[in-house]
Design a protein around this nucleic acid. Sequence first.
DNA 1: CGAGGGTTTGAAGTGCATCAAATAGTGTGG
DNA 2: CCACACTATTTGATGCACTTCAAACCCTCG
Lengths: 240, 240
Amino acid sequence: MQLQSQPDNSFDSIIATGLFDGADEAVTQSLAAGTSQQFIKKGTVLFIQGDEAKYVYIIHNGWIKLFNETLDGDEAIVDILTTGDYFGDSAMFGNQCYTFSAEVAEDVTATLIPIQQFRNIIEEHPVIAINMLSNMSRRRKQQDMELEHRTLQNAPQRIGCFMLRLCPEGVTKNILIHLPYDKTLVAARLGMQPETFSRALARLKKEAHIEVQGATVHISDLNELTTYSCSACSSSYPCE
Amino acid sequence: MQLQSQPDNSFDSIIATGLFDGADEAVTQSLAAGTSQQFIKKGTVLFIQGDEAKYVYIIHNGWIKLFNETLDGDEAIVDILTTGDYFGDSAMFGNQCYTFSAEVAEDVTATLIPIQQFRNIIEEHPVIAINMLSNMSRRRKQQDMELEHRTLQNAPQRIGCFMLRLCPEGVTKNILIHLPYDKTLVAARLGMQPETFSRALARLKKEAHIEVQGATVHISDLNELTTYSCSACSSSYPCE
DNA sequence: CGAGGGTTTGAAGTGCATCAAATAGTGTGG
DNA sequence: CCACACTATTTGATGCACTTCAAACCCTCG
């Protein structure tokens, strides 16, 4: 692993998750003691499935891919996370081992909290446990949606839905968004092959009237895209 | 709703979930006050998606189907729960509304805890919050697996995998299990059509050498079934 | 017995995966 | 700044798994 330690002067990134809302000074103090903020390069594998859990990671910047590998070399994307997300917490409760592998998909800045320390903080500060519960139940809901999407939406619709979640709220016309990471990874994230992604994107362009230039997407009319993507779904835009 | 209230003398079902492990007398007392245990008939709809959340349900017995409905009438199964499972808790943290619908798939006995009361208990008893976190992270892991299964396993493998999770631990030869609910529901649970289920089951019979009589399944050699089902998966039997 | 739901079987269609190959894009060293 | 190597993306052709529609069968229960 290529890690470059940096002095950690702020907890902006931590606070961003909403995890430590309502926590008192004592908590931030105690956090500052054991944590480190690190810059980690694309391609670095943070840990693999089955490793003993050492840290909870809070992402400040960049992208992290969580995945599982099967016996015959296939890869299942668990999630792809970015700013404000955290992971590794689930290992705190089970057998203390990570249940997935983590790789840096785009250069990352992250805060690492030793897992035992994190656990202590939770046990001593109910507020944070509640915050975590709140976070977790939101994520569970998202996972439910994910499964629903896989079942009910076809490839072009899934891509459209993915784009919708990248759109800023409030605006409905002339939206410009950027795909967050390379298309192969987006494809994997959406549970399809790169070839399928390419073809599905082409269909989406035609049928929902959007324009794509590399990683840049131009959506002239949001309604058209929602109509196209969300019709097969149990919740309409904004789907959360 | 056809509800029949019954006096609630024991908290066996509550304790079964592991939710209240380590909680003191005060908690159980306070629970007994507001809760009721009820018998509810197959087909009853407990609530639908969007309803204001009133209770957390703890299942004592029977089966509950959680699902979402899409605009065009399709149905996506979120989960199918039984003895020891609980649901409705996620609504405590968000907008206080259920994010899915719940229907009784097989006659149920359940304990209903008013949501505000549950929330109070959590806030006052960190132990229970930790228990919930522990439960939630286990369920999240299961959902990860679920998504992986949908992606990597074909229909017969998914059925085999489902059966494996019904097998008692330790035994490897001559296992008898019973499918928990009607085949249409199993199919939906596994994300396939009833017709596909029927055909896939037929293939499974041939290729993994199991016998099926109605809802009864006879597995003469467990290893054969695990080899057949788990090869495409990132974790081998017993897969959690 | 006959009605109705659950289950199976058949035939045809669709969507995605796979394999193969061409093309575009990116970064490297000369 | 160009040529090369290497990777990402696109395009084409084909196959397979699952869906869909239709009809038969089975089972249970009034």
